[in-house]
Amino acid sequence: MTEKLKLDEQDRKILELLNRDATYSEIAEQLGITKSELESRIRRLSDTRIKVLIVDDEPDTLLPLKRALEQEDYNVIEARDGLEALEKVRTEIPDLVLLDLMLPGINGFEVCQRLKQDEMTSYIPVIMLTAKSEVPDKVKGLELGADDYVTKPFDLAELKVRIKAVLRRTAP
């Protein structure tokens, strides 16, 4: 699973230093980051599960989905609005984003567009997950670069299959 990890420059440096048996304090000092941040990065680097970011402002939609995916052994992280979603993608580098469209602030379409326009994040597959079931919305979402479009209420089994399919399709 290690080859599936998406590493940024700092992650590579952390791995390199760890291989030279440097202590956490030395590494944090050398990279100019706090020790807690280093610890969270190392925790992340050590977690080899597939990481899924769920973006939804409705806690009641988010929670069951999170539990269901956790049961499937996904590492699930969450964001409640568009800005938080962009921030999480940048810091957590998820393997997949489940994106709701009706979000406060920046809506789902815009989040998708920004992710797909940024070279650093454009490879991350996005599945749109929304109550908007009209064809124009689907077309728009797919045109913006979404990899799949699932309407609420969805079937959990189907969603799981689709997630797997998208991951398989987009695997490097």
Partner: peptide
């Protein structure tokens, strides 16, 4: 949206 969102939540929860 308002009708589907609770339904989705309920459906997912029930399936979990």
């Amino acid at each position: 949206h308002e009708l589907k969102t609770p339904l989705a939540a309920m459906k997912t929860s029930a399936q979990v």
